[in-house]
Design a protein around this nucleic acid. Structure first.
Lengths: 188, 188
DNA sequence: GACAATTTATACCGATCGGTATAGACTCAG
DNA sequence: CTGAGTCTATACCGATCGGTATAAATTGTC
């Protein structure tokens, strides 16, 4: 039971650093200090280990996003809360954020991409929901939920990408700038 | 001579579809119909094959971007030309664009990411150059080249990402929308 | 047609891959 | 104290991994 968590922890550390394909199960179990049958007792395959990891970390992440994405009539405020939540997640769970991002952009027929797709879709739907609700107040948003949700998440990930490269600190000012730029562009 | 190109072609197809790590050299040579020593005659390792691929395809891509990024006094026009060039590249060389994108987001210690970094940096520098030059005409851009270049490329890649998922066609209207949104936000 | 250089295939290397059959230790209910 | 279920280790599986020693074709040159 504790070994199970340890295996997930070490798998996360290794996968996020060098990639799912490049890391063997041997490496994972050695990092924990157990043997392969232990891993295969808890997870029925390497793929199963990845899925369990996505359930544990991705589930927690979606909860946070969902909480932040409750639209209450003010689009800017809602978007700021969402950005704040994402930044917080990237800061407190850097390894998972990095891994998840790599998986989203992984080749379409790779195990990694296929595993992350449901998680990725849930994020997209949550954000689309925000823009759909906001469209009731702002007519000119209508019919563009999909592109706006993708574009907004893209901007968030650009900032987090800079953070992951040690090129940017995710301050409150960056939260404001991200939303402001999304809403009003680079001028003004 | 011809086999060399064939090997690069098939490697590109396979890497873009399933990822560098997941594809063995055996698969590549079988796809071409040759044997391993042939591959190792032209490239001294699997890593060398990847580097040669990046030189061939990435070099051509950078040429196109550089050509489109010549700033001539009109920022909007220049950005539109850049977006157009990127969309064209994504459409005519979908496999390489997909592979390159996956490598950019691959884990930092993976071979794929380390190989793509110089190429990625050149793109970033080209775009930064545009914003640096534009800052002479638009003072309020000054000191933000890096973020703007990254953000702009991020928006481009969001659109291309939708295209790669069959969710969006890269029309001239999308070129306009991408630049317009970057400059003025989602309103107006 | 001989010769050198380039290009290719046969056959093999040790290491690692993901995964498992078997059995021993441990926990805990009865 | 027993027996069932949970958890873990030893030892192994066939397959594939990236890479190579050797030598046979193939090519172009004189």
């Amino acid at each position: 039971m504790d070994n199970r968590q340890e295996l997930l922890d070490q798998a996360l550390a290794l996968f996020s650093q060098r990639g799912y394909d490049a890391v063997g199960v041997r490496e994972v179990v050695e990092a924990v200090g157990v043997t392969k049958p232990t891993l295969y007792h808890y997870f029925d395959s390497k793929r199963g280990l990845l899925h369990a990891l996505l359930r544990r970390e991705g589930g927690a992440m979606l909860e946070q996003i969902l909480r932040a994405a409750a639209y209450q009539g003010d689009l800017v405020l809602t978007l700021e809360k969402i950005v704040q939540a994402y930044f917080q997640l990237a800061k407190t769970n850097t390894n998972f954020y990095r891994m998840q991002l790599a998986m989203v952009f992984a080749p379409p027929e790779s195990e990694a991409n296929q595993a992350v797709r449901p998680f990725s879709n849930e994020q997209q739907e949550i954000l689309e929901g925000v823009f759909t609700q906001a469209a009731e107040d702002h007519g000119n948003l209508r019919g563009r939920h999909r592109r706006y949700a993708a574009g907004f998440l893209g901007q968030i990930n650009v900032m987090i990408g800079l953070y992951l490269n040690d090129s940017l600190e995710l301050t409150d000012e960056v939260v404001y700038l991200t939303v402001h730029q999304f809403m009003h562009g680079i001028f003004s």
